[in-house]
């Protein structure tokens, strides 16, 4: 029994050392360390794996339904001290719509909704960004969806900069409110353009971006 206990000590130490080493490695490479000082106007490329596009729409006139688009791509330049010089351009494939139900996703891709064959992407390109207060801004731009390009306005929150896998990163969130009827997506919408139909007219799109510096 004693021999077994003694033999187990180095094994446990090795495991403990390994675990501590891994934890240290995690802290240095995986966990982003947020830096509060303002970043310079750097160019960033969107990390599709750590960025999210989530949308919300009324269902049956009462419930809030959430879906997402996977694989956001794009790039931006932004300096919180000089926001007006910032530029943003994003794109996501309509094919990548994900609502947690494959049948519904197929339906959303087809001619009834996104018509993903004819309109393979949803694109956003900024036209201006203005400071509101703190780290909040108003981002204006053109949203292209379902063959229509419309000016939209996003509430933009700059989350700051940090490092991830020894690379500088930046992060922000933006919330855009649109009416899908503005983009000629009117199927299953109430005739009066309200949210009372099978599917609502107002859609909230939330974009959460993590982007390594280029």
């Amino acid at each position: 029994m004693r021999i077994r206990t003694i033999a187990a000590v180095p094994v446990a130490l090795l495991l403990a050392a390994g675990a501590l080493g891994f934890a240290a490695h995690e802290r240095s490479t995986l966990a982003p360390s947020v830096e509060t000082p303002a970043a310079q106007a750097a160019a960033y490329g969107v990390d599709p794996v750590h960025s999210s596009v989530v949308f919300r729409i009324k269902h049956a006139g009462i419930a809030n339904f959430y879906g997402r688009f996977n694989g956001l791509t794009g790039e931006f330049t932004f300096d919180p001290d000089n926001p007006s010089a910032g530029q943003f351009a994003f794109s996501v494939k309509t094919q990548n719509v994900d609502t947690g139900n494959s049948q519904r996703d197929d339906h959303l891709r087809n001619a009834d909704f996104f018509n993903a064959v004819q309109f393979p992407t949803i694109d956003f390109k900024s036209t201006s960004i203005t400071h509101v207060e703190g780290n909040h801004y108003v981002l204006k731009g053109d949203l292209s969806l379902h063959g229509k390009t419309r000016p939209v306005e996003a509430k933009f929150e700059w989350l700051g900069t940090g490092t991830f896998r020894n690379r500088p990163i930046a992060a922000f969130e933006a919330v855009i409110e649109i009416k899908r009827s503005d983009f000629d997506m009117t199927h299953y919408m109430a005739p009066d353009g309200s949210d009372s139909g099978g599917l609502g007219n107002n859609v909230t799109i939330k974009v959460a971006v993590e982007a390594p510096q280029k």
Partner: peptide
């Protein structure tokens, strides 16, 4: 519309 962008 007379000629919608979406051919569908």
């Amino acid at each position: 519309q007379l000629w919608p962008t979406s051919s569908a």
